[in-house]
Design a protein around this nucleic acid. Sequence first.
RNA 1: GCCCUCGUAGCUCAGUCGGAUAGAGCGACCGCCUCCUAAGCGGUAGGCCACAGGUUCGAUUCCUGUCGGGGGCACCA
Length: 525
Amino acid sequence: MRDALAALAVEPLPERVDLERPARKEHGDWSSNVALATAKKAGRNPRELASQLVDHLNADLPPHVERVEIAGPGFVNFHLAPTWLHDVLSDVVTLGTEGFARSDAGVGHTVNVEFVSANPTGPVHAGHARGAAYGDSVARLLERCGYGVTREFYINDRGVQMQNFGASLAARKKGEEPPEDGYKGQYVTDWAAEMPDDADPVAWGEDRALADQREALAAFNVHFDVWYKELALVDSGAIEETLDELREKGHVFDDDGATWLRSTEFGDDKDRVLVKSDGELTYLAPDIAYHRDKFSRAERLINVWGADHHGYVPRMKAAMQALGHDAGELEVAIVQLVELLKDGEPVKISKRSGNLIELRDIVDEVGADAARLTYLLQSIDSRQTVDLAVVASQGMENPVYYVQMAHARIHGITRKAAEAGFERAPLNTVDLSLLTHERELDVLRSLSELPETVLSACNDRAPHRVTTWVRELAGAFHGFYHDCYVVGEGVSPELTQARLWLVESARVGLAIGLDLLGVSAPEQL
RNA sequence: GCCCUCGUAGCUCAGUCGGAUAGAGCGACCGCCUCCUAAGCGGUAGGCCACAGGUUCGAUUCCUGUCGGGGGCACCA
């Protein structure tokens, strides 16, 4: 393309030539707006330039390109031959679930993804679920793109809430009501009944809560590499070190008997207290020390926070800058809140009464796969409404079912083919050029987009794009399934073989996509 | 009051670096099973991309403002 532009004496040459996938099939497989983008600077007419460009390219077509056309105000559209898609099929099945749609963009780089980080005072609840699905999926995307990834859970086990929790357990054990600002959920009573007489309610309660959280998250297919206790941070002396470092660097001052971080220096609204006038630490001081520790273990940090915490972003970023990091090295993904419905009725959750929906309840009710795919259906930037009855339903209003159906059909075909005596022949003995049906090509077009989808989803921390892609592939496959029989009277053995490989390629694509979402798919529904 | 975020079909939402006639699913309506699961497929209807300016050859996309929904503005964790 650049050569063609140079040959046409375009001056100045564009820095980059963008190719994009047109939204409409008639516009070809690839399209470039380069004539539009450069015409003005070069003092040429866009349409005319595009036309010359097309002539030049058509004179010597690159491999797989069937023809190049001019369209609209000056777009240059490339129409590819089906052979291109047959090569895609070969790539997919040769590279397989391990190798296809993998990127080395992050090789040699480390990222720490911290998410969930629920307080160790009770079970993981519905409010954590979306962030859990999101954080784990982002970690999966990063891994697929070559990054060294740590999944980390921060345990907030220092502070008054632990005393309240311990006191609540102790009270329940004695058959009394918890204190006014204590924890009133049913689980406190249940756990108190398990608690040995000689146990320290605070320490025992923390372990009990963590065990419960770990189990519920595992059932949600989320596993952490590091569970980091705030108390360990306190014991390590890291907080004092951090305060000293900030003071040395001149970002700390004393006022009103308290110690302050001059966070306004780095864009925060106001300066923040690190040590209160009574000598106690605020939550912020250990948090800074914790992030400092994470930076000693990874180049880049991603925090997944609920929308109710977004106000803390500027001060954390300011603190990291005070420690000498670039603001961009700490990313905070803000996950908008989920409104939970049950049969269209809002589920009221009240922390005060302890009346909350546990993650475990959701998994029990709809299954981990359905729950995860549902949470990853939409961008985290939009508020989500989840109706548990819909997620659990086995109907069309449920995208989970649509996707799982495609996967089950793939295995249905494989089973049926085996019954009819068909095993896949080696790929190099199969004539893929028989795959010319528009439905077949649609499946392959969809597969051809997976590598770029994965990379962009990774770079933009947007796993929902994978979900969208998986739904599209499932749609293309359902169309193929309907119109193209793999095994049947009117199908030649050669075509059966080619289609068996097509089915396999769809299976690989679906497997990759679903794995990135942390969703398994049944072979049968 | 200030900050973050969202506003796209009746509903739930996609829409990448600004591109062509704005997409999908559900719901509505009309079709399609002698064969791998009809839990599916095809078609029709349905849009002032909240509104008003600006930048641009070109804006759903970028900028400013207005309106509306959600969240946040502690020497609380």
